Computed example of a mutant assay.
Amino acid sequence: MPAHTFSFRPTTAGPADTAPRTPTVYFTLGTVNNTTDLFSRVLAGLQELPVNVVVTVGESVDPAELGPLPAHVRVERFIPQELLLPRCDLVVSHAGSGTVMGALAHGLPSVLIPVGADQPYNARRCLDLGTAEVLDPLTVTSEEVRTTVSAVLADGAYRRAAERVAEETNTLPGPERTVPLLEQII
Score class of each variant (00 low, 15 high):
V92M: 09
V179P: 07
Q119N: 07
L112G: 08
Y26D: 02
D128M: 09
T141Y: 12
A154F: 01
D37Y: 08
R159W: 04
N34R: 13
T139D: 02
T171P: 01
A3D: 15
H106K: 02
A157S: 15
L69E: 09
T18M: 05
P68Y: 13
L38D: 03
Y121M: 10
G30N: 10
T141W: 10
F78C: 10
D37P: 06
V140I: 09
A105F: 00
E65M: 15
T12S: 15
S93Q: 12
R74F: 01
C126K: 06
F8L: 13
P109G: 12
I186H: 10
T56H: 08
T148Q: 04
E65S: 15
V51D: 02
P50T: 01
I113A: 02
G45C: 12
G14V: 06
T11P: 00
G14W: 03
E133M: 14
L172F: 04
A123P: 05
R74P: 00
S93D: 14
H4A: 15
L90Q: 02
V134H: 00
D89Q: 03
A132N: 05
P2F: 10
R159C: 07
A103Q: 01
A132M: 07
R160Y: 13
A19I: 01
E144K: 04
Y121L: 14
A105S: 14
V73E: 02
L69D: 04
T28M: 07
T141P: 11
L181K: 10
A3Q: 15
T24C: 08
L127M: 10
T35I: 11
C126Y: 07
T35S: 14
V145L: 10
T131N: 11
V179F: 06
V57H: 13
D89Y: 03
D155C: 03
L135E: 04
V57W: 08
F27A: 06
T35E: 12
G107W: 01
L112E: 07
R125K: 13
F39R: 04
T131L: 09
A157I: 08
P23N: 00
L90H: 03
E65K: 15
P109W: 11
A105V: 00
V145H: 02
S93M: 11
T11C: 05
L46K: 09
T28I: 05
E163M: 09
S7T: 06
E76L: 05
E76R: 12
T141R: 12
V165W: 03
S150I: 07
P86F: 01
A71T: 13
P63K: 08
T139N: 01
G174N: 03
A117Q: 12
G30H: 11
N170K: 03
D136G: 00
E183P: 01
Y26A: 11
L135C: 00
L38V: 06
L127I: 02
A71E: 15
E48Y: 13
T31S: 15
R74Q: 14
T147E: 13
M101L: 15
F8A: 14
L43M: 09
A44T: 15
T36W: 07
P70I: 06
N170L: 11
G67F: 11
A19K: 10
L112W: 11
T22N: 05
L38I: 02
S142G: 06
L182K: 03
H4G: 11
A123F: 05
